[in-house]
Write a protein that binds this DNA or RNA. Structure first.
Lengths: 339, 339
DNA sequence: CTGAAAGCGCTTACAG
DNA sequence: CTGAAAGCGCTTACAG
């Protein structure tokens, strides 16, 4: 099979201990021995087994990542950032795409444990009782990225969703809109579900605008549900002049639905999205959106996780990590002159 | 630290051998012992170390995947399919997003070797001499998915790109187009670079149409390059009535460029894409595209790789694996009545 | 500075 | 059916 440390030792005429020492860059190896060892490594094409190393060092350099849907631009962008940060810190990623399948998540968490990953990143909010129990006694640092599930005490890397949604709604109000619809998210998630909804509602009421339930729907953050929810809104007696969707995907779905109904964005209905994903620049008209610092969130997630790992539970981040949001106006909203 | 097999054995009052046996589902263990062991496992929350197992079994159940750009819908879709197939066969993914960085690829291949992955999937064509040499003597099955780099003899899972590009071009010709532009790919890739270009050219010449180099550009498959290449084409004296881009991303970039120049798709210029990614249904007008069976390609890639793994080099796939393509007409092309 | 030996947490012949 | 022992490929005290 593959060449092992013993083969290198034999070829170099030294002990495996010595080979191990030059492998790990220890000093106290005479130069000529070091030279012989390195030459043997070179000639044999020796690459040490991380498996064996992990067994003795108890370090796997592995981080397990659970992604709800890797084909979503938002998640794949965070993931690419996570990957980059992890990689540059010497960590590798075990990636699990659960696509709504809770059983798969449980299976994967077990695999993560078998593989002795040093930390886990979770990016979805559908945490049930069984999973909560499991990760609680897992004895491995867990961090949530971009979500904050209910009833659990792990750190989340998020933005101030309430404030962000409030400001996004105010943007529309500032443009003169008074009939503003809403396509929300999952209420099992505190921030992207509940807080964004509260932000929307409070912005309206603070500005003396009525909350019209006919214009309010809840989706699953994906394009199709944005489309479907928008269609329901379009069936109403009176139409809103603007819609705020809490993900860019849903906003694009809504835009497409409006387009397919022969209405114009922003001529007939303005649309605001949320996330600031690449989609915003991909569609026409370009989508105005409340931007999350997606890429930065990925690196902060890994950075914090690495601190948790090296501190072995002693590190206190001081609770959730709140990143800065920023509204980016593009071409999907218009000013209402005569409401 | 974590509980190990010895702890279970002690608690159950048996030898570690016996625990190992019930763990691995061997028969020849008396029911009452099995019961005691399982109870001990349960009570201790024992999960065996895959690291230790791998060391003795020489099986890691790991597949290394190199993706050029995980944020691209095309690649993330293949990846999700790869993940699903691997997972359901008991394999886990070590994912590397190289984002154009050849050095990173080399680093990752080394890590793959250290981790003793059982197989490797590569999804990009920029294989240089150093990398070629490395994977050739890696002694691990390698398979290329959706690409076929030059000068290497590993299996690729691809479609008949020549024929597909030919048919896509013919679709436009069939609609009456005579001035058909082309936004191509990377010539280092035989199929998606060279063959698609040949398919386009031969379709034109077979139908007595002229090849106009003013309308031909080459990009990197991404949205931005589609946009940029289209802008160059739009600068020409005479405009084509249609453009065929060899990726949906570039086609969307081209559509956006046309839109930003106040021209209509398909009114002024028809656009055909390639891949059949989710983007085709996301944009308006919906993009007509030559569809690759993306999801199936992912599962076939893993399926073939697993055969290569279990056959230990004895399995002969009979060369590249050619999947079926299919043109899907949507709304981005119009019929030319008076050319 | 260098090496023999023990040990990381498992599995697998080999005996019984 | 069950267990003691060797071994997977490394690292790390411990001696020298």
């Amino acid at each position: 099979m593959a060449v092992k440390i013993k083969d290198v030792a034999k070829k170099a005429g030294v002990s495996v201990t010595t080979v191990s020492r030059v492998l790990n860059g220890e000093k106290y190896v005479k130069d000529d021995l070091k030279l012989r060892v390195n030459r043997a490594i070179e000639e044999l094409g020796y690459v040490p087994s991380q498996i064996a190393r992990s067994l003795v060092s108890r370090k796997t350099n592995l981080i397990g990542v659970i992604v709800p849907d890797i084909t979503s631009n938002f998640y794949s962008t965070i993931l690419s950032s996570i990957e980059e940060t992890a990689s540059s810190n010497g960590y590798n990623l075990l990636v699990c795409n659960i696509s709504e399948d809770i059983d798969k998540e449980f299976k994967y968490l077990t695999i993560f444990k078998e593989m002795r990953v040093e930390g886990i990143v979770i990016m979805h909010e559908k945490i049930n009782e069984e999973i909560r129990t499991f990760i609680n006694k897992l004895n491995v640092p867990v961090i949530f990225s971009s979500v904050k599930p209910m009833d659990q005490e792990f750190i989340s890397v998020i933005i101030d969703d309430y404030q962000a949604a409030y400001e996004a709604t105010e943007h529309l109000i500032g443009l003169g809109h008074e009939r503003i619809g809403f396509i929300g998210g999952d209420m099992r998630d505190i921030t992207s579900g509940q807080n964004r909804y509260s932000g929307y509602r409070n912005a309206l009421t603070d500005h003396k605008l009525k909350i019209v339930y006919e214009w309010i729907r809840f989706g699953d953050y994906k394009v199709q549900s944005g489309y479907d929810m928008m269609r329901e809104i379009l069936r109403g007696k009176q139409l809103p002049t603007a819609v705020f969707a809490v993900s860019d995907d849903m906003a694009v779905g809504a835009m497409n639905c409006i387009y397919d109904h022969k209405l114009q964005v922003p001529g007939d209905i303005s649309v605001v999205g949320f996330d600031g994903s690449q989609l915003t620049e991909l569609v026409r008209p370009r989508l105005s959106s409340m931007e999350q610092p997606i890429y930065e969130m990925g690196s902060v997630t890994v950075g914090t996780l690495l601190k948790l790992i090296s501190a072995e539970g002693e590190y206190d981040s001081g609770g959730d990590i709140i990143m800065k949001h920023r509204f980016i106006a593009r071409d999907s909203c218009r000013r209402i002159v005569n409401p």
